[in-house]
Write a protein that binds this DNA or RNA. Structure first.
Lengths: 146, 146
DNA sequence: AAATAATTGACAACATGTTGTCAATAGTGC
DNA sequence: GCACTATTGACAACATGTTGTCAATTATTT
């Protein structure tokens, strides 16, 4: 079985996705480092910050499309860093509800500002349409695989 | 600092890259599993297979944009699996030259066939131009960050 | 209500990457 | 040739993800 022209192009896109993932992770770590965070911790704090209802670890993991166990470890780290609070869950004795702490909220707001400056500058030479088209293609491909 | 419209779109693309990376890794593991390989091992075998000259671990790592040490571990695994051979390096006593083994060559050829079938099918609903435009944007963004 | 199934957090093992450090080796400049 | 520098592989520690397993808890079925 030989690759079609489209197959060749999509193969390049797969490899480029791996590289870009690494590059974005590194950039995220640089952005988050002054706040004592990492890309992974930042990403876990995202849903906790944005979704106003308190949520369990399992809910966060489902929302992020990651395994429950990996998110649990990050959440435990964030608890130690006092970025989040555990509330007792009336619906589930052993599954605490998680909310962002005041310190966590402030941190995320500051990080969002730094990320906005970063991403605005990064987007300067690009056209909005190009970005949106690329995003759309990536989403289409991903959904096809899920 | 607020995000521009382009900044918003590019932020979505960053998050989508993380998701797509996970999806592609999972797909690669599925493809490679029948051959006793993983996405990572497959990716390391790529340069060894394609680049005809024997190369050292450090060379492979540079070519892949990864840390020397991570590649070293995978290479050691591949040696145990007899997918690659170590040749003594006349230019560097303790840095063996690596070549693909016969078994490794056969495995990669079979994997390439399986990947071609996979990627051809995945690309069916997409336009060549769309894929190439997306790829181009991703490369532009990555190079800006390096 | 009792049995069964599903969810959840905790823990372990592992895969894949990172950085830091070290000794061996190779290359460079004087 | 000798001192300094850079590269390389090996090893350790760690970050981030995975899967598997377990007991506790919750939901469902009968």
């Amino acid at each position: 079985m030989k690759r079609t022209t489209k197959g060749e192009a999509l193969t390049s896109l797969v490899l480029e996705t791996f590289r870009l993932n690494g590059t974005f992770l590194a950039a995220g770590n640089l952005l988050a480092e002054p706040f004592g965070l990492t890309s992974a911790r930042w990403q876990v704090m995202g849903p906790i910050f944005e979704f106003n209802e308190p949520m369990t670890v399992a809910q966060i993991a489902r929302r992020m499309g990651l395994a429950r166990q990996g998110v649990q470890r990050i959440v435990n780290d964030l608890k130690k860093l006092e970025m989040i609070n555990f509330l007792s869950n009336p619906d589930h004795k052993s599954a605490p509800l998680i909310t962002i702490s005041e310190a966590g909220r402030k941190t995320i707001i500051e990080l969002n500002k730094a990320q906005a400056a970063w991403v605005n500058s990064l987007s300067e030479g690009l056209s909005e349409n190009q970005i949106k088209q690329a995003l759309k293609l990536m989403e289409t491909v991903r959904k096809q695989l899920e």
